[in-house]
């Protein structure tokens, strides 16, 4: 029971990061109809933006690192939208897919040129202390990561449900033509959406960099793959569905690690994907245009 609760907590911690990255994918896919393969590497840029600031000014803490992560990732996301996604909008989905994939490769290799191909140490922005929550022991960093990601997810939910621009975002996701004909400036909302998705990813990246104490130019691959699976498993109808699946995949991975074998961990998400798509091809919570 203790192992179960401990792994449940560990799973929630990393699952919350998957959720944040997955929401970025889902926003781009549902609102802009783009499979943004550069998203995981925007996440990676955010991680290094935070690292650069804290390496330069070690006195600055986590908060400043997160601001830098958001700024770095947001800037790349914004430029990507302007230069690759917007000009290819309305063309074949494959065009933007290849375009963003190209940007992803450029980002990874450019970063590898700057920082080297191997993982580098991430500064300890929070103390390595344990917090006991009942039978479960978590580090301060784990708790912080979970809290930060949960806050980001809460803000997204608040944005899409409670604000005028957020409702317009959902309106575009469901019916872009009707949204445009009702006075919604679709291109502007698309810009804002990518900016938001990128900034969130940047914050989460700093947090998870701190959590594991390392950063790498190729860190996006792992998170990107998991996040992409989360979106497919959930379906794109409800953003909250994607969030829940992100947490669930994290938990499943942790349980597989705890009870089976850590070598099976990365396969778990794929088993979930195959199982869910077999029975619910439009995802657990349904998809638009389905």
């Amino acid at each position: 029971m203790e192992l179960f609760l401990q792994q449940l907590a560990n799973g929630l911690v990393i699952g919350s990061t998957y959720s944040v990255v997955a929401i970025g994918f889902a926003l781009a896919f549902t609102v802009l109809r783009v499979i943004n393969f550069a998203h995981p590497d925007i996440f990676m840029v955010g991680m290094f933006a935070g690292l650069a600031v804290t390496a330069q000014w070690p006195a600055f803490g986590l908060l400043v690192a997160m601001v830098a992560g958001a700024a770095g990732a947001g800037a790349v996301g914004f430029v990507l939208e302007r230069t690759v996604i917007a000009p290819l909008r309305g063309r074949d989905v494959l065009m933007t897919l290849i375009g963003t994939l190209g940007v992803a490769i450029v980002l990874q290799n450019a970063m590898a040129l700057v920082v080297g191909p191997d993982p580098v140490a991430y500064p300890a922005l929070l103390p390595r202390r344990f917090i006991d929550i009942g039978p479960v022991a978590l580090t301060v960093r784990q708790v912080a990561n979970f809290a930060i990601c949960l806050l980001l997810l809460g803000l997204v939910s608040l944005y899409v449900r409670g604000t005028s621009y957020g409702r317009a975002t959902r309106a575009i996701a469901e019916r872009p033509d009707v949204a445009a004909a009702f006075g919604i400036h679709v291109a502007r909302i698309c810009q804002i959406t990518i900016l938001l998705a990128s900034m969130m990813a940047g914050v989460a990246a700093v947090s998870v960099g701190m959590l594991y104490g390392s950063a790498s130019a190729f860190v996006g691959l792992l998170y990107g793959l998991k996040a992409f699976i989360c979106m497919l498993v959930a379906g794109n109808r409800y953003f909250e569905g994607v969030m829940v699946v992100g947490l669930a995949i994290g938990i499943i991975e942790a349980l597989v690690t705890g009870y089976l074998s850590s070598s099976l961990r990365d396969a778990a998400a794929f088993f979930v994907l195959i199982g869910v798509l077999y029975f619910r091809p439009n995802g657990l919570f349904g998809s638009y245009n389905a």
Partner: peptide, 9 residues
Amino acid sequence: DNLRLGGFA
């Protein structure tokens, strides 16, 4: 929200 979006602009 459908109605509110009618007045978005």
